[in-house]
Nucleic acid binder design. Sequence first.
DNA 1: TTGTAGGCGTTATCAC
DNA 2: GTGATAACGCCTACAA
Lengths: 316, 316
Amino acid sequence: MISSLELARHCGISQGTVDRALHNRPGVSPKTREKILRAAKQLGYRPHPAAREILTGQSTTVGAILPTVNNVFFMDVFNRLGHWFSEQGLRLHFTPVENRLAFLEVLEEFASRRYRLAVVIPPEDNIPVPQNLASALRIVSLISPCRGKGVDFLSPDEAETGRDAVRYLHGQGHRRILHLTYDRPAYAIAARAAGYKAQCREMGLASKVLSFVDADRLAETLRSFRPTALFCHNDWMALRVQLILAAQGMRVPEDISILGVDDSPTLMAVHPGLTTLAYPVEKAVAAIGDVLAGRTATIAGERYQLVERTSVRKWV
Amino acid sequence: MISSLELARHCGISQGTVDRALHNRPGVSPKTREKILRAAKQLGYRPHPAAREILTGQSTTVGAILPTVNNVFFMDVFNRLGHWFSEQGLRLHFTPVENRLAFLEVLEEFASRRYRLAVVIPPEDNIPVPQNLASALRIVSLISPCRGKGVDFLSPDEAETGRDAVRYLHGQGHRRILHLTYDRPAYAIAARAAGYKAQCREMGLASKVLSFVDADRLAETLRSFRPTALFCHNDWMALRVQLILAAQGMRVPEDISILGVDDSPTLMAVHPGLTTLAYPVEKAVAAIGDVLAGRTATIAGERYQLVERTSVRKWV
DNA sequence: TTGTAGGCGTTATCAC
DNA sequence: GTGATAACGCCTACAA
């Protein structure tokens, strides 16, 4: 591949003039500019971004990290982010990662490339981020927090999410609400379950959390707890549960109601009837914009928004 | 962030010695090496990959492009690829893209960064790739072909996939097989449907393709065509169909059998019973390795492999 | 064992 | 309007 110096030589002029022409800067005669641009196109000249980055010390790339598993909704979030960044003239470079080691390695890579920002969903909670990494690279984490100074955690109050779920289902007349979730130790999982329990208690409802869901355990819990509504940790879980219920001959929402969380667009394409609490993506995007602009940001006061479809019915 | 020259000055020695120490090359006294490494760690020195890339003219990154929609299985494929590349000391930089314009822009970016290879799943079929792009960047496309010289298309014979589906279901005793697919113009969609039809004809079976699936159209076609088995274009479609069937009170596989294609790990986590034809990922990965090594490669002779689970039953 | 010099591709500056 | 030069961070080759 040809360099700007070679391009200059090819045209029989200096590199400086070539540079001015390529960047539409004044100080080049129309004739020369024309000649240069034609030659550039013909020879397939492409500026090498790495050289610019060395010179300016700044890259125009934003790094993203997301876990390799259960990544449907996370992909949706990052697609939205990528769209927004490209409007800002930034590129989103994203890397899936499966454990804390790879997570930190990729973060190191982003730092050494002088990326403008890293937006990450850590593969597990509270990965300790070394001080020198966080001071070299601006890091924003979503969904799960990191440990260590200098990493911004952008998350709604997830206990409130659990409470909102109970409030909504209670408002629909449900009195026996089962919470289905995962058994991993993660902020959102623990906080939503805690909010769910607290709200049930305050409303005088029985509560029960099933944190490892398979067909047998679900069937058994359905028999013993007799819930009329299922509050699932996320849409993905809701989908899984719906398939299990279907195999057992139960109808949704006739026999039982299901509430998800996230409002993942990808999942909605396959399961359009799911009533869910939508993650405030736009607020998160705006907050990340603030961080980019050097302002402090938070979405701690934001709520998941209810999107009513057909998987929850009034219980009378 | 500190440079190797600054690091050298800090230690009161030359840049060359620092370089040798950092790369564990001979020619540095243990004492000096020790001092340099300690200082590097303490000052948070990180080599700037961009500088190395300029110097060597080669990057160690492989670019990946995948469409933003229906990307669950594609994500699975790229996760597998990323894993393999990292074993080779390469990084996978991947970018989701929603249309042909963005697709070509990202490819340009990869080319100008001198990436080793681009592995892409184009957002639509037959996007024309300019000659000068393809000659600057090695491109391998999966799933959907590109137009233009120099882009390798790595794909099994998809007509054969359609035939294999029919052969298998026929072997299980099914005589009325409905094919559910999408109405986008895409190689795999058209080829599988063609293979399905041809094989049905050769076996003397009635054939029917429904290429836009919603609850009403499916119900109506079920009534009129009375299939005993559904051959779905992919697992994602199979999942959607299973949810629709469940809502209509049909049981799988008691009332009707379902066959998917891909064997997407992510989907299997939520829908573990789906019998499916597995995409030959390992062969694709190996072929990409061949391309990287400069050899020519193809997977045209490979087949999707049947993975029997519980969604297809013998029909008597 | 260590230091020096040159060059990779780009851009900014200053001289002509 | 154009050309020359230096600088960014790194690495290789060669000299001390």
